[in-house]
Design a protein around this nucleic acid. Structure first.
Length: 494
RNA sequence: GGCGCGGUACCCAAGUGGUAAGGGAGAGGUCUGCAAAACCUUUAUACGUCGGUUCGAUUCCGACCCGCGCCUCCA
């Protein structure tokens, strides 16, 4: 069964079939690097990441391109305010963004920067003008003439048919033929940064970069274009207008949009004080894996209410899966195999796939894996687990993690990087005591921990529980959880 | 106002025309030197409200209430 995805363009769930048999070409709108990315941004990027990972798991080769918007009004304004070049200003936030995607295990797409393609954009605009879809305003700005593009509004389902070309609205404010016409190119105001191009001095409008760079990398028609739901209009609508006006061909087959999230039941905003970046959350003591898990656990088209209680629950869920994996890999089971476990694993893989194929129903996939965990634990407790059952069960867990990417216990180095950054930025005081304490205990190497553990085991064998408990308490204080099992002690970092 | 999405237990969250996955939290229990982990039992006469269709609706239709999004640069 093929993947079924909601396509904003048709407003329906459709079978996803790429143009080329085996290859998917997708483009995702990336960040505008004028500030740190927040969890709302990352919800979208994680949704796209889940899509990308699932496509690959389904056997497609994925060509995934993402833009970095490193020029816009805010960037121009802020860089001028700080007295630095546009590139100097954006470099910091671009770096931060890439670090954050790593922190959240978002696979890196091929990146394209807007400022690397200014000349291409200028050429593109010149061609649009030649074709009659663009015009130059008195100040040297260029606008797209939407009255020339009858399909305008087909993505956002807006009806612009009644709009007459030439009906001037707000003439004082806009130097355009029609208020709905949007800027392709902005002439510089005095003191503003600009690029020198054949169509004059200025900077690109917001939408043009995505048309130029996506088609430049992926061709005139490609499979899928993704972004947050707010981009449906005007951004993606305008991309369609520019691109299809240019080529006369369909621009994109599938439009994929992730829904906005709420934070503690309210729209995230700085004024409400519920505005968080992944860095904020890490400093508050939340693991990157918890953040990713929570952001991925609600299907992308549903509103996700991001709460601190939810973050805690996510952490517990991840812990449960990690503990299960640890159990399978450390416990000794009798030789042989019990037929039911490999069936269970197969069933689970099938259910996860079915869920994800159904418009990326991540919640269903999670339900499937947890049901397997419970059943497998029960079997192990009942002494019915066999040595050969382990591999298929682990395989199912692996399939799960190919999509969710939360099981590898690599939170600590990422947390450390955030701490290092906080120190440099003078934000270390915002870090919780727990985070700092946990980071300090990372000094304890695996070898040292192992040594302590074997000392503890010796004490236990001698039934010197006072001593063994003391060691366990000491390790615990250092962020190491020790669990005694019938096959000996096993440990993990908190 | 136009267009669209949603309202499921203490919290998060799937799902179905025939009476509710999963996770977290709570309670009780098993195991254990003690912990931890794990397992078992338990927590929705019921899926916003009111009508309608139907043998039967939480699931389909209608109205209403509530929440949310977009309607020019916010993912």
């Amino acid at each position: 069964m093929p993947l079924r995805l909601f396509n904003t363009l048709s407003g329906k769930i459709e079978e996803f079939r790429p143009l080329a048999d085996n290859q998917v070409r997708m483009y995702a709108c990336g960040p505008t690097v004028y500030d740190y990315g927040h969890i709302g941004n990352f919800r979208t990027f994680i949704a796209v990441d889940v899509l990308r990972r699932f496509l690959r798991q389904s056997g497609y080769q994925v060509r995934h391109v993402m833009n970095i918007t490193d020029v816009d009004d805010k960037i121009i304004r802020n860089s001028a305010r700080d007295g630095v070049s546009v590139r100097q200003y954006t470099a910091k936030y671009e770096k931060a963004f890439l670090e954050d995607t790593e922190t959240l295990n978002i696979e890196r797409p091929q990146l394209v920067r807007a400022t690397d393609h200014i000349q291409h954009m200028a050429q593109f605009i010149a061609s649009l003008e030649k074709k009659g879809f663009a015009y130059r305003a008195e100040d040297g700005s260029y606008y797209f003439r939407i009255a020339k593009f009858p399909d305008y509004g087909k993505l956002s389902k807006k009806d612009f048919a009644g709009m007459e070309d030439g009906a001037r609205v707000d003439v004082d404010e806009y130097d355009k033929d029609n208020a709905r016409d949007f800027a392709l190119w902005k002439a510089p105001k005095p003191g503003e940064a600009f690029w020198e191009t054949p169509i004059g001095r200025g900077r690109p409008g917001w939408h043009i970069e995505c048309s130029v760079m996506s088609m430049g990398e992926l061709g005139e028609t490609f499979d899928l274009h993704a972004g947050g739901e707010d981009l449906i209009f005007p951004h993606h609508e305008n991309e369609i207008a520019q691109s299809e006006a240019m080529t006369g061909k369909p621009f994109v087959h599938f439009w994929f949009h992730a829904r906005f999230l709420l934070v503690e039941g309210e729209k995230m905003s700085k004024s409400l004080g519920n505005f968080f970046t992944p860095r904020d959350l890490v400093l508050k003591g939340h693991k990157p894996s918890s953040i990713r898990y929570l952001l991925a656990s609600v299907p992308y088209r549903n509103q996700l209410n991001f709460t601190f209680s939810g973050l805690k629950q996510a952490a517990e869920s991840v812990e449960r899966l990690r503990t299960f994996t640890l159990r399978l890999t450390t416990e000794r089971f009798p030789e042989g195999s019990g037929e039911s476990m490999s069936d269970l694993a197969k069933e689970t893989i099938e259910r996860m796939r079915a869920g994800l194929q159904d418009d990326l129903n991540t919640a269903q996939a999670q339900g499937a894996i947890f049901e397997m965990v419970r059943k497998a634990n029960a079997a192990a407790d009942a002494g019915q687990m066999r040595k050969d059952d382990v591999a298929p069960l682990l395989c199912a867990v692996e399939k799960f993690d190919e999509i969710f990417a939360v099981l590898k216990d690599d939170d600590q180095p990422k947390i450390q990087r955030v701490l290092d950054w906080a120190e440099m930025e003078g934000k270390l005081k915002e870090a919780s005591q727990e985070v700092i304490a946990a980071a300090n205990t990372q000094q304890l190497s695996d070898a040292k921990v192992e040594k302590k553990i074997s000392e503890m085991e010796q004490a236990r064998r001698a039934r010197n529980f006072k001593h063994s408990d003391a060691i366990r308490a000491e390790l615990n204080a250092a962020g190491i959880v020790v669990e005694i099992t019938k096959d000996g002690a096993r440990w993990r970092r908190k």
